[in-house]
Amino acid sequence: MTITQLKYALAIAEHKNFTKAAEKCFVTQPTLSTQIQKLEDELDIVIFDRGKKPIELTEVGRKIVFQARNIVNEADRIQDIVDQQKGFIGGEFRLGIIPTIMPTLLPMFLNNFIKKYPKVKLKIEELTTEEIIARINDGHIDAAIAATPLESDNIKERPLYYEPFVAYVPTNHRLRDRKTLEVSDLEIEDMLLLEDGHCFREGVINLCKAFKNQEDEHFQLESGSIETLIKLSNEGMGMTLLPYLHTQDISDKYSSNLKHFIEPSPAREVSLIYHKSELKMQIINAMHDLISSVIRGAIAFSNVEIISPLAK
């Protein structure tokens, strides 16, 4: 068997279609099919059930694909060792970023990174934390920027910065006249939340002290974007919490709606995360150093209390 055959098998397992897998691998469909058939003939087993739509792995096929992923990763490590030895920082690098970090952090470092490391071909995708963990484990992305800690045995975390929570309190809200807030002031029933699937939502829920059964609430309003939450809050629908960097774009008209917490400020830990196999570490190190230097001028908070992004 060959590494190429194993890569073809992984592509089919991912896309569940021979044609799509061939496109992903930049070969013709007959070429891919022939190589998979040779692999199955050599092993004297059937890896894929071609009678199913979409194509499914057989029982033994699932075990082979699991092992194939380990073998391909280890083969990639050989090139990675060579690149590190030569000091080469380049090649494709697939990066995932969660939605509540992407719009504020990416513009701060992307242009600088591209100019400093022109040989790196960045592929950036907005993903939820759950999707990021799955794709790092499957080898579909090389690293990600997310709120931590994630408590995943297969993932390493390198903190980039600590971003405080800031309250956005509209006119006529019960907390409007408070200059600073305490965590105990928060009540979940008058809080506008991001929709389910956002780790920042879980952080807000973990932060709040008071909970009510949803059936007892007059309404529950959730949104997929922080910008929408701000607009709804301005309409008097409730208060919300924002990551600190999002407050930098608030217009002067609404800046008085921002309320900070007394120290230690509740905050989220934002980290660069990657698989424990530590592939492409020269790019990961370069990205970590650049982002850390850029963010240092924007966030100088140290007396913070980290709020977990995990659902409790």
Rank of each mutant, 00 (worst) to 15 (best):
H246F: 11
I226S: 03
A147Y: 03
L245F: 09
F48H: 05
N112H: 14
I81M: 13
P243Q: 10
D49F: 03
Q29D: 02
R158P: 00
R201S: 01
K119P: 07
D80L: 05
I226T: 06
K212V: 12
A143T: 02
E269G: 02
I283R: 13
D80Y: 09
N112Q: 11
D41T: 08
K16L: 09
L150P: 01
K276R: 09
T148V: 11
N257S: 15
Q214M: 05
K123R: 11
L207N: 08
K38W: 01
A167I: 07
L43D: 11
P264N: 07
K116L: 13
F66H: 07
L122N: 00
L10F: 08
N112L: 10
R50V: 04
I36V: 08
E278C: 09
Q67M: 13
L310C: 03
T104S: 15
K20M: 06
I283H: 07
I81G: 06
I306F: 06
I262D: 04
P266C: 12
P309C: 05
E125Y: 08
R69T: 10
I114F: 03
S255E: 15
I89V: 13
I133T: 13
R94F: 09
I98Y: 04
C208T: 15
I262S: 06
T129Y: 01
P103N: 07
A75M: 12
M191F: 15
P159F: 07
S225C: 11
A298I: 10
L6K: 15
N234F: 03
A267N: 09
K20D: 14
C208R: 06
S271R: 00
P309L: 04
P170V: 11
L290N: 05
T19G: 10
R62P: 03
M287G: 03
L232K: 12
D185Q: 07
K116H: 06
L122V: 04
I45Q: 02
E14Y: 09
R62G: 08
R62M: 07
S184G: 04
S184W: 03
E130G: 06
M108S: 02
E151W: 04
